[in-house]
């Protein structure tokens, strides 16, 4: 198990009443994006459905996952996260698209 930092958009932090930029979530190994988001949703049930679909668990279209400066939004849901994330040096970033009015 490791404590994973998850950086969230402002709207989701407010929805979950998270202070600061990040949530810190304990996740069992092997630690992946899918397992981290599942742990995040278990801790903050109000976030269910806001990052990924309730049923398919598909990422919402206007969100992206960034890991150590790389876009892991596609085909990386079950890839083990790198050491920098596991050691807490880097957060898993859930980023909202710059779009809309």
């Amino acid at each position: 198990m490791a404590s994973i930092r998850v950086e969230l958009p402002l709207h989701l932090r407010r929805l979950a009443a998270i202070t600061g930029y990040e949530a810190s979530i304990d996740v069992d190994t092997p630690i992946t994006i899918s397992r981290t988001l599942a742990a995040l949703e278990a801790r903050y049930p109000m976030l269910e459905g806001t990052i990924r679909d309730h049923v398919t668990l598909k990422r919402r279209d206007f969100l992206r996952y960034f890991v150590c400066g790389e876009d892991w939004s596609f085909d990386h849901n079950d890839t083990p996260l790198p050491l920098a994330i596991l050691e807490g040096k880097e957060p898993l970033i859930v980023l909202g698209a710059i779009a809309g009015g």
Binding site: P9, H11, L12, L15, M46, G49, T50, I51, R60, F62, L63, G96, A97, A99, G100
Partner: peptide
């Protein structure tokens, strides 16, 4: 509701 985050 939100185009980014869906329905609450």
């Amino acid at each position: 509701t939100s185009g980014w985050f869906g329905q609450v």
